[in-house]
């Protein structure tokens, strides 16, 4: 488990994601997509969640292997999850592509959040 408490945590999250993507033998394009999604979500954890953690693992399911990353924070949470997943919608100064964009970059994307209860985003990229 990696702590994301400052800018260097976002850099570390990218490095961990890349290492696992290589271990999983993802293609270069798939690696790049996963690492980019990790970067977006780690930054969200830091900026909107007030810091948190990334838990990274290789998973085997139904004969396929993948990389799973779980981003968790204890921040204010997201009142309207559907709205937060809309392109261009932002509660901060960003461009509003972090959540919706990273969803497009991975195979599985699960967002759990409630006001006052923090946010957990779980993403998985499967090997082909």
């Amino acid at each position: 488990m990696l702590a994301i408490a400052a800018n260097d945590g976002v850099v570390r999250a990218r490095q961990v994601a890349r290492t696992l993507a290589q271990q999983c033998r993802l293609s270069l394009v798939e690696q790049t997509k996963l690492v980019t999604a990790a970067s977006e979500l780690a930054r969200n954890t830091l900026v909107y969640g007030g810091g948190g953690t990334m838990t990274a693992s290789l998973v085997d399911e139904r004969g396929r292997r993948g990389v799973r990353l779980v981003f968790a924070d204890q921040g204010p949470g997201i009142p309207d999850v559907d709205l937060a997943l809309t392109d261009g919608w932002t509660s901060g100064s960003g461009m509003g592509l972090g959540l919706s964009g990273s969803k497009r970059l991975v195979d599985d994307f699960v967002l759990e959040s409630a006001p006052g209860r923090g946010t957990t985003v779980t993403i998985t990229k499967w090997g082909r």
Partner: peptide, 14 residues
Amino acid sequence: MRPAVAITLVELGL
């Protein structure tokens, strides 16, 4: 710009 970066940028929406 690397090709994989270009592909990812477009999918990201940028």
